[in-house]
Design a protein around this nucleic acid. Structure first.
Lengths: 209, 209
DNA sequence: GCTTTGCTAGTACGAACGTATTGTACACTC
DNA sequence: GAGTGTACAATACGTTCGTACTAGCAAAGC
C-alpha cells in the first residue's frame, strides 16, 4: 500500500540532520523546522517519523550512544602492539583531535547538560555505555596484570575507572581550550607509563612531545 | 537624583535568579520573563540592568567563574593535616556530593555545552580559572615533593594536570549516575595514595570505603 | 479501474520568545 | 516648589516555536 519508503533510512537521515545541527549550531538550535530543512524534507515528514520533538531528541541520543558502544567493541586496534600501546591508543580515542571527534563531543555535552535538568532525558540509562567501556578497559588491564605488565598490587578495577575518568576529564579540558589535544595525549601517556611496569621511567611530557 | 538603588545588589539578585533557574530547570528555561519572575521584578528591570539577554548570560557565567576562583584560593583547609589529606580534601571539592555542588555542576555543564557552539561564549576565556586551579595544585605537589612525600621522579606538572582532569572526569561520572559520589571519592583517594609515598600500599577501594 | 492506504507537503494556531517603546513615581538639585 | 533624570512597570511588536489539521499523490489490493 505504501509508496515504498524505507522507514529506517528516513529516520536515520533525519537524525543525522539533527546531530549535524546540534554539533554545529547547538542542540538548542535544532528545531523541527531547522532539522527538516537540514534533512531536505518538510516539517510534516519529521513529524510523521518522530511524533514529537521529544522523541526526535531521544532518537538522536540513542544514535549517539550506539556510536559509543560500537567504538567500545570495535575500538580494539591491534593486540600485537603490546598492551600498553593498546590501552593508550584505545583511550586516545576519547580525546577530540579532529573535527569529527569534536563534533561528537559537542553533541554529547549538549545532551549531558540537558539530561541534568530534563526529566525525560534523565530517566534514560545512557550510563550503560560507559559501564561497558569501563568493562572493556578492566578486562584489558586484568590481562596485562596476569602477564606481569602491571604490578600485582594494583587494583585493576580502580585503575580502569580512573583511566576512563582521566580521559574524560582531559577531553573536557581540550574542548575548553585549556590545552591542545597533543598535550592531553601526552598526559594520558604519562599516566599509563606509571601503570605499566615496562614503561621507561621518565619521558618528556607536559610540553610538546 | 536617582531613587537610590544599589546597582550591584540588584544585578546580583537577578543573576542569582538566573543561576537558580539554570540549576533547576536548565539554562534553556532561563528566559527574560522566567528570570524576572524568579527575581521578583519585572521584565523591564532585567532589561534595565542587563540590556540584552546575552549580557545577562555572560554575567551569569562570570559569577559562576568567580565562585570557582574563590574556591581555588580559599579552598585550602588545613595544611597541618598533611599534604596528602590536603590534596585529597581539595580535590574532593569538585565531586558533587550535596545539592549545592550538583547545582553548581549543572550550571557549569550548561554553559560549557553552550560555549561549544555559541561564538559569544566561546570567545570568553573561562579557561583562566582552570589554569589557576591547576597552578594551586601544582604548587602543593611541588612542596610535597620537596618534603619527600612524593617520589623525585614524578613530574608534578603532569601529576597536577592529571589529578585535576581525573577529578573532573569523576565528577562527570557521578552526575551521569554512573557511580555514587563516595565511590568517586574512593577512586580519587586511590590515585592520590599512588602518588604519595607515605600512603599505605593497599586500602579497600571501589566498593564502599 | 476504483478504492484504500502510506507518505509528504502546506498551512494555521496558540504560546513564548527577545526587545523596543512609552509612561510614571520618586529623589535630588536649584 | 519646579524641574530633571533615575528606577521601574506596562504593554506592544514581530518572530519563532511545537503541534494539529487538511489536502494531494503514488502504489497496492480487489
Amino acid at each position: 500500500m505504501p509508496k515504498l519508503a524505507d522507514h529506517d533510512e528516513r529516520r536515520a537521515q533525519i537524525v543525522a540532520a539533527l546531530l549535524r545541527i546540534a554539533a554545529s549550531r547547538g542542540l538548542h538550535a535544532a528545531s523541527m523546522r531547522t532539522v527538516a530543512a537540514e534533512a531536505g524534507v518538510s516539517v510534516s515528514t519529521v513529524q510523521y517519523y518522530f511524533h514529537t520533538k521529544e522523541q526526535l531528541l531521544l532518537a538522536g541520543l540513542e544514535h549517539q550512544a550506539e556510536g559509543v558502544g560500537r567504538r567500545a567493541a570495535a575500538g580494539m586496534p591491534n593486540d600485537a602492539a603490546g598492551t600498553r600501546d593498546t590501552v593508550h591508543a584505545w583511550l586516545v580515542q576519547f580525546i577530540p583531535v579532529d573535527e569529527e571527534q569534536r563534533a561528537a563531543y559537542t553533541v554529547f555535552a549538549a545532551y549531558h547538560a540537558l539530561a541534568l535538568t530534563d526529566p525525560a532525558l534523565a530517566g534514560l540509562s545512557y550510563t550503560h555505555g560507559s559501564h561497558q567501556l569501563e568493562g572493556v578497559l578492566r578486562d584489558l588491564l586484568t590481562g596485562a596484570q596476569r602477564a606481569g605488565e602491571v604490578a600485582p598490587d594494583r587494583e585493576v578495577a580502580a585503575e580502569a575507572g580512573n583511566l576512563l575518568a582521566l580521559a574524560t576529564g582531559l577531553a573536557d579540558s581540550v574542548m575548553a581550550n585549556m590545552r591542545p589535544p597533543d598535550a592531553a595525549i601526552s598526559l594520558l601517556g604519562y599516566q599509563i607509563d606509571r601503570l605499566f611496569i615496562v614503561a621507561s621511567p621518565s619521558r618528556p611530557v607536559a610540553g610538546r612531545p
